[in-house]
Design a protein around this nucleic acid. Structure first.
Lengths: 336, 336
DNA sequence: TCTAATTTGTGCGTATGTATG
DNA sequence: GCATACATACGCACAAATTAG
């Protein structure tokens, strides 16, 4: 029988065998007995050599895989992928797209996470195929999976091979999987509804509300909440796909979730010598520092991305399984 | 024994041998070592030359056959049928940090890249250890490496195991490795120098230039270019680490590369009833759409991130090895 | 081309101890 | 005392990938 000199298993010890195996490999890396790229003995040889169950070795190797230390190639074997044994956890973070307010979310998430946790970031760009392949390709290589599903439907089957209780849904959720997966989400419908109510006094000087809703990436809850508010409070309203070539009239309020639309609207309002915040109202979505000084202050409906990052980090650090609704508010500035 | 110079098999590598064989042939076609119609060495010569099993070679050749790259003539041998290889390019993209103007750069890069190329994005957060481990851990997993080295020194040794001619330096470069690696870079010193010259007429109404330079992440070229301009044009100048608690006086111009400093300055200027663009000047760095409407328009020194993404995509698509200086300009708005 | 050996990956069943309510 | 859930450990079978002869 082959002798393996870097693994030590003691049956009488209190420590579970698979954990002894994990720390054996770690120590072998520390003492440079095992180096990057080295092949580790196969599951079968190890379980025979130490009379362990195949499963026990598998459990140990899987943990090392989720920490990024080992990698496996079916039919070939296990290899040392990284000699950095400091990370206890590796997080798979799947965003929809890179944009300005992700900066706050991501930085707050990283700041609130202990440095024993490593985060890899991916983007699916609202492309279902990319979304699918990123998840399936990275299955098994991370200890936590944080996923921003955008408005994709029916993606549970993708999760079937991910470890349960290690999945977190970010930003969006549906009633269908409430209480099914933990995470932090925006209640889009409620947020816009309540934000508009809290702006009732300021809105009174206008006659018509216009939501700019391109209907691609935007969450449908926004639309629902807007329509519900308009109906409940007897507003004349309109939903448009974009503001371009539109004749902007006095006593209109525009709600523009997209920043390029926002910039266009501000410029058009100035060009037509309309007074922003008096003749025409403007409400933006997702706050960034610059909106405080843009057009003398843009009123914004925004979820608290700092808080979202913090809540997510806490969920992961403390292994909690809550579903947290992220706070949102209307930040009132001169544009309304 | 015959020497075969276009096949490379490494038994210690984690990649299956037949896959190494497939990519050897592909790379030989790419580099025009093998051309359409060429005869490939026979299965027997290859399996003897590299001590492989006959089957291993067969598996590789069969895969190349089903992909339409090879064709076989019984009794004669294998021939290159098509040089149209569509093997999946994977790009390793290492950014410094996630921030608002990366959005433009990244989106333009992705838009200009053919969609068969996959991009994984990483961040080193100006942490040298993270920078090192991300590169070493991902060595061998990608066909292209795009690296934003920030102001790190002496990182060539890290590149030794990366495939040569597959490395691109982004955003920063040093005279030391000009002409060594292709890429797209900002000439920070020249850009700020020329931008300020192009603003000479507008600057004339002020007396003192103040650069807000936190001296951490910011490239030193900015500082050098600023000082050189001030000396060449006889300006009174000052360099401060941050604008907080500073008494802002008339006839001062602030150059604020950091957006939080920018927002603070605008608010302070308003609070002190100073007239932005008349009493006090303000120049920002890195343009984003919102800066057009912030404080009635913020004058900005900015490299063209759209162009940077486009140039980078073209370098990769066309396998060029140029080092491109990205265009930069002073975008004049009301704040100066 | 066929057969065989080795390896990872997955699924299912079983058993034991421990913690929780 | 009982039911339940969870972690640990073992055994077996089968699928799919890799490599060899």
């Amino acid at each position: 029988m082959k002798t393996i000199d870097y693994i030590f298993i003691d049956n009488n010890l209190q420590i579970p065998k698979y954990k002894q195996l994990v720390s054996s490999i770690q120590k072998a890396i520390e003492s440079e007995l095992l180096q990057k790229g080295d092949k580790v003995d196969s599951i079968n040889t190890i379980c025979k050599a130490f009379s362990l169950s195949r499963d026990t070795v598998m459990v140990a190797f899987n943990e090392l895989k989720t920490r990024g230390i080992l990698t496996s190639i079916p039919g070939k074997g296990y290899y040392i992928k990284s000699t950095n044994i400091n990370f206890q956890e590796k997080v798979f973070l799947l965003f929809d797209e890179l944009n300005a307010f992700k900066e706050d979310l991501y930085n707050s998430f990283m700041r609130n996470l202990s440095n024993k946790i490593k985060v890899d970031i991916y983007f699916h760009h609202f492309n279902r195929k990319v979304f699918n392949s990123l998840i399936t390709e990275n299955t098994g290589n991370y200890s936590r999976y944080v996923i921003m599903p955008a408005s994709f439907q029916n993606f549970y089957p993708l999760f079937s091979k991910l470890p349960k209780n290690r999945i977190y849904i970010l930003d969006q959720t549906k009633t269908e999987f409430k209480n099914k997966y933990p995470g932090v989400y925006q209640n889009f419908e409620k947020d816009i509804y309540n934000a508009l109510i809290s702006g009732n006094d300021l809105l009174r000087k206008y006659k018509k509300l216009i939501l700019v809703f391109p209907a691609g990436k935007e969450p449908k809850g926004q639309l629902k909440g807007f329509v519900r508010y308009c109906n409940d409070y007897n507003w004349e309203y309109e939903i448009i796909q974009n503001p371009f070539n539109r004749d902007i009239k006095k006593e209109e309020v525009y709600i523009a979730p997209n920043d390029r639309h926002l910039v266009y609207l501000v410029k058009e309002i100035n060009k037509n010598n309309l007074n922003l915040g008096k003749d025409v109202g403007l409400i933006s979505y997702n706050d960034t520092p610059l909106k405080e000084i843009a057009a003398n202050g843009i009123t914004t409906i925004s979820t608290d991305f700092e808080k979202m990052g913090e809540s997510l980090a806490k969920l992961i650090e403390n292994k909690q399984t809550k579903l947290i609704e992220n706070p949102s508010s209307l930040i009132i500035r001169n544009s309304l």
